[in-house]
Amino acid sequence: MASRVNMRPTNKNTLLKVVILGDGGVGKSCLMNRFVSNQFDEHSFHTIGVEFLNKDIEIDGETYTLQIWDTAGQERFKTLRTPFYRGSDICMLTYAVDDKHSFRNLQMWKNEFLYYADVKENVQFPFIVVGNKSDVEQNEREVSQIEMETWCTENGISACIETSAKNASNVHDAFAIAVQHWLKLETRADKNDCIYADTVDLTKKQSENRTSCCINTSDE
């Protein structure tokens, strides 16, 4: 943040709102903390409702500011986290590779997101599936990479990756892939949706430098 509070409008980056979803304990907060501050705390607490952090990331020479909303996975926080889905640009669906149940719940998370984010049905939303805790011993692993890829294919999600917040592997990549994926869909959406550009889109998020105003969550 400090870098942005200058007199000069140094930050002309595109702002992207990223929501991290997944069962409690799969390591959402750890992923975010690893990505944002390169820290890892084995004994981190349960997230209360939501947490929020900013992080700049450079993709193809362009800097994007990710506004990352980390959510609480516990069921009792459902009503507290869902209000934050609306206006998201990227949704990161997470599970832990040593927790089959968290993997099975991906479907639920995806549905919850689509419902509360009010994503239009025919719009392809940039989901990325992240299998965290890839550092676990092979014998503790319950979900294979193939399973993940299969599930993603079946659900029309083209971005997926295994990460370890603990040893930092692939964490940055996960976010980078997410942004690239968004870019890809964004470009496509630009081409497709520009005919709607004359309609006022009140759901438009705070990305003032966004080239387009008619993406995913628009209500037209």
Binding site: M1, R4, L15, F45, I48, E51, L53, N54
Partner: peptide, 16 residues
Amino acid sequence: RCQDTLNTVIANAIDT
């Protein structure tokens, strides 16, 4: 942590 989040959100808002 919650306080940090709120502060970040506020700073973000003001900055934006």
